[in-house]
Simulated scan of single mutants.
Amino acid sequence: MIVELTEVTQFDQVAALFGEIWSLDVAASPVPAELMCALHLAGSYIAGAYLDSELVGASVAFLDASGGLHSHVTGIRASQRGRGVGLALKLHQRDWALARGITKIHWTYDPLVRRNAHFNLVKLGARPVRYLPDFYGPMAEGDSDRFLVEWSLTSSPPAVSGSDALTVAVPEDIEALRRSDPASARRWRLDVREAVQLAFAEGYTVTGMTPDGSYVLTREAE
Rank of each mutant, 00 (worst) to 15 (best):
L132M: 07
L132P: 00
L132V: 06
L132D: 08
L132K: 11
P133R: 04
P133D: 01
D134I: 02
D134P: 00
D134W: 02
F135L: 06
Y136G: 12
G137K: 13
P138C: 10
P138L: 09
M139C: 08
M139I: 15
A140P: 00
E141D: 15
E141V: 11
D143M: 01
D143F: 03
S144W: 05
R146Y: 08
F147Q: 07
L148Q: 05
L148I: 02
V149R: 08
W151Y: 04
W151I: 00
W151K: 05
T154L: 13
S155I: 09
S155N: 12
S156F: 12
S156V: 02
P157E: 03
P157G: 03
A159F: 09
A159K: 12
S161P: 10
G162R: 06
G162P: 03
G162T: 09
S163G: 15
S163A: 14
D164Q: 15
D164F: 06
A165E: 12
L166A: 09
T167H: 05
T167I: 06
V170N: 07
E172L: 11
E172D: 02
E172V: 06
E172H: 10
E172W: 08
I174V: 01
I174R: 01
I174A: 01
I174Y: 12
E175H: 10
E175N: 12
E175K: 04
E175W: 07
L177Y: 05
L177S: 03
L177W: 04
R178L: 05
R178T: 09
R178V: 01
S180H: 12
S180R: 13
S180G: 02
D181F: 09
P182S: 14
P182F: 04
A183V: 04
A183D: 14
A183C: 02
S184H: 14
S184F: 10
S184A: 15
A185I: 14
A185S: 07
R186W: 12
R187S: 15
R187P: 13
R187L: 15
W188T: 01
W188A: 10
R189L: 00
R189K: 01
R189W: 04
R189A: 00
L190M: 15
L190D: 14
L190C: 05
D191P: 11
D191G: 14
V192G: 06
R193Y: 01
E194K: 08
A195S: 10
V196N: 10
V196A: 04
V196H: 06
V196C: 01
Q197S: 04
A199H: 08
F200H: 03
F200Y: 13
A201Y: 02
A201L: 10
A201T: 14
A201C: 13
E202N: 15
